[in-house]
Write a protein that binds this DNA or RNA. Structure first.
Lengths: 228, 228
DNA sequence: GCAAAAGTGTTAGGGTTACACCCATGT
DNA sequence: ACATGGGTGTAACCCTAACACTTTTGC
């Protein structure tokens, strides 16, 4: 029997929701509703009920942010458990990492949530900057080792989109030809034989899809996008 | 103000303590003291007090296992937060991963703790097998990307020891010559010019130490021991 | 001299990098 | 015809992988 005086901790969960609009990596921020730091930017967060699972908490947060919560990828990031994070008592924050298809989502109207360019982000309240830093490292690693970068993209996408996505996530330039070579050598992409004119005045670009079989295989066993 | 009915969760912490005795990878297991599953093997675990930090909980657990807690490496593994892990109420287990120098430690006498060969481990109680699986994956990754394998070894060690350690952690054979080549090309090892006869009847082996500077550099920036 | 483990090089192949020009389109 | 971004190939280098024999020691 666990002594009852241990049961005095609260659980919260913050989300780092990544998206990609074709040009920028974005995360969802929330405008804080309460004092202190009213209206300061923060990660979307909620208290987790004592009987509530983390998955359910994450999902309900996502539902409060987006109109339809389309398919998304979520995983646990880390527990931030410093005893003095919150003045009301001990609140352990189990941060979650999420990636979803920007184009398939829509923020709820009149909510306190908004997409924010990762490159141009204000400081967040509490320890949320630390959580974000952690999440960015996770993203970097995932992009390198798994075809997870692809949770970002619409069903059909151009080479440029995936190229830009990888450059932003890894925060480095990737040689166009080499990146293409590697990507296509992996059997991960399928040419749809469609093309699309992204901007007026220039050559239309090809549209690609994922090879689902290969995608799942690589998700399981991992691979190595070891760009210098 | 966070409403008070959230503060009903308890915090526990389990440790996966890895060690290496020169021949086997080991973890510390504990014999459970209470029913149900009295005397069943489990990961060393403790409840975390509401004001106690995770680091402090980990350290006190280590102190209860070992006579002297020498230098060790610990990091958070994952929070296991399923609401129904424990019948007394919600207990969130924040599992920790730890590596220490086997040769520099000593288990406390008459304790319920013991070293256990990873290759020959019984089933553990509750979700501890799941935690262990997670920890083994973490170890694998760490060994690949960082000179963390070296937290295992004594100050001076033979090539065979580090070779065996890597083989066990990665769970694959590593070609002796190629492994040696890679290891020495990294500037990470220093030849002590000492040698030691490990077993009678054969050639003594060289002793190596770490190049601390290089070690720290690689700890920060990572490297890539990508053995096939 | 024998048993046991330590220590040592080479080669072939594959992957990574660096790099510059032509192509298709809309105006 | 021109401006814009899309799309393409090659060569040098490096790293990896495969592989077997000699050396040193204690008995």
């Amino acid at each position: 029997m666990v002594e009852s005086n241990y049961f005095q901790v609260a659980l919260s969960s913050s989300l780092v929701v990544f998206g990609f609009n074709g040009k920028q990596l974005l995360i969802v921020t929330e405008k804080r509703k309460k004092s202190p730091f009213k209206r300061a930017p923060m990660l979307p967060s909620k208290m987790v009920l004592p009987e509530e699972s983390l998955e359910s908490a994450t999902n309900s947060l996502l539902k409060s942010i987006f109109c339809e919560t389309t398919e998304n990828h979520t995983e646990q990031l880390k527990a931030f458990a410093n005893p003095y994070r919150n003045s009301d008592g001990r609140v352990v924050n189990i941060a979650q990492y999420a990636v979803l298809r920007y184009a398939a989502t829509q923020l709820k109207m009149n909510s306190n949530y908004q997409w924010c360019d990762l490159e141009d982000l204000p400081s967040l309240v509490f320890d949320h900057d630390e959580i974000l830093t952690f999440a960015k490292e996770r993203l970097k690693r995932r992009v390198k080792r798994r075809p997870i970068g692809f949770h970002f993209l619409p069903k059909e996408f151009t080479f440029k989109e995936i190229h830009t996505l990888y450059e932003l996530a890894l925060r480095k330039k990737l040689d166009k030809r080499n990146f293409r070579k590697k990507l296509f050598s992996s059997d991960l992409l399928v040419d749809t034989n469609k093309s699309v004119t992204v901007e007026e005045n220039n050559k239309p670009s090809n549209l690609y899809m994922f090879n689902t079989k290969e995608y799942e295989k690589l998700t399981l066993k991992g691979y190595d996008f070891s760009f210098k």
